[in-house]
Amino acid sequence: MNHTLWIGVIGTSAIAYGLKLAGHSVPEKFLSHPLIKRINLLIPIALLSALVAVQSVTTKSAIVIDHRLVGLGAAILTLVLKAPFPIVVLSAAITSAAVYNFF
């Protein structure tokens, strides 16, 4: 497990920097193709949405509905009300902790 964590830390960092440096080094036309740009906007949407889903309703390989989903509901509510990011995260944490501790 500890190896996995270290490989994750080092591998992610190395590739993250490689991607940044590559951007500063390649000719502009290489990455400015409209299709590449469009897919580049869509990939983060898909990955982040998947992460929201997996982190709120799954534990290991099971679907688990618990206090986290209530917290996520609070986050959605604050986002609809256009609250800033820290308020979104805090509301989710407080709501989820309240359900976890008191129910």
Partner: peptide, 9 residues
């Protein structure tokens, strides 16, 4: 719950 909320944000 803060982690999925952060991703959602």
């Amino acid at each position: 719950a803060a982690v999925p909320a952060a991703f959602l944000g």
